[in-house]
Simulated assay, not measured.
Amino acid sequence: MAGTGARYFFLFLVGLVIGAVASVMGMRALQARQDPFPDALMHVQQWHLGQLKTNLEANRCNATDTLPHFAALRSTADDIEAAFPENRDDARFTKAAGGLRAALDDARANPPLNCPSLGKTMETIGGACKACHQDFRG
């Protein structure tokens, strides 16, 4: 009787391992079908905003410290509609993306020269991001 129980337990463990392996393989297959571009774009923009915040906290608010991040943010903002083609025809989405580009154009044309003005510029950019995220972030 103990031998039968041990066999059933062994088969249960084998089934559990095979199920776990099959689940991981299935999840990897689904993940491989997803386009990484939208998430990558948002991660890059978030990183540059984080660098600006770090500069602000470290009192490094000169134009030479902020302009490279504004330029990178502006460059990646051109790809927002391409990254989210399902929202490309939505007027709210294009308005929010245009608002972000306008805020970044203004930040590059009139770079903040001190920390209080960098804080205000970051609030404007953050507001432009929030306008889109409120309606479209999943």
Rank of each mutant, 00 (worst) to 15 (best):
A2D: 12
G3R: 14
G3D: 10
G3W: 13
G3V: 14
T4V: 15
T4G: 02
T4K: 14
G5L: 15
G5I: 15
A6E: 05
A6D: 07
A6C: 01
Y8Q: 07
Y8N: 08
Y8L: 12
F9I: 11
F10G: 11
V14T: 06
G15V: 00
L16S: 11
I18C: 03
A20G: 08
V21Y: 00
V21H: 01
A22W: 10
S23I: 08
S23P: 01
G26S: 07
G26M: 08
R28N: 03
R28P: 07
R28V: 12
A29C: 06
L30V: 08
Q31T: 05
Q31W: 07
A32L: 11
Q34N: 11
D35V: 11
D35I: 09
P36A: 03
P36M: 09
P36D: 07
P38D: 08
D39K: 14
L41N: 08
L41C: 03
L41S: 01
M42G: 08
M42D: 06
M42E: 03
H43D: 02
V44S: 05
V44F: 05
V44W: 04
V44P: 02
Q45Y: 02
Q45P: 01
Q45T: 07
Q45D: 01
Q46E: 07
H48G: 06
L49K: 03
L49R: 02
G50E: 00
Q51I: 15
T54Q: 15
N55H: 12
N55Y: 07
L56F: 15
L56N: 14
L56Q: 15
E57C: 04
E57D: 13
E57G: 10
A58M: 03
R60L: 15
R60D: 13
C61N: 03
N62G: 06
N62F: 00
A63W: 02
A63M: 07
D65C: 01
D65F: 06
L67A: 05
L67V: 14
L67T: 13
P68W: 01
H69T: 08
F70N: 09
A71I: 09
A72G: 10
A72V: 15
A72K: 13
L73S: 01
L73M: 05
R74Y: 12
R74F: 14
R74E: 10
S75T: 12
T76N: 14
T76W: 12
A77D: 10
D78Y: 11
E81D: 15
E81N: 14
A83T: 09
F84M: 11
P85Y: 09
N87I: 02
D89P: 00
D89F: 09
D90N: 15
R92Q: 06
F93N: 09
K95I: 10
K95W: 00
A97T: 12
A97F: 04
G99A: 03
R101I: 07
D105Y: 02
D106G: 03
D106Q: 05
A107N: 03
A109R: 06
N110C: 00
P111Q: 04
L113Q: 12
L113I: 10
N114E: 05
N114S: 08
C115E: 06
C115R: 07
P116C: 04
P116T: 05
S117L: 13
S117R: 15
K120A: 15
T121R: 02
E123G: 10
E123F: 14
T124V: 14
I125P: 04
G126N: 01
G127A: 08
A128C: 05
K130C: 01
K130P: 01
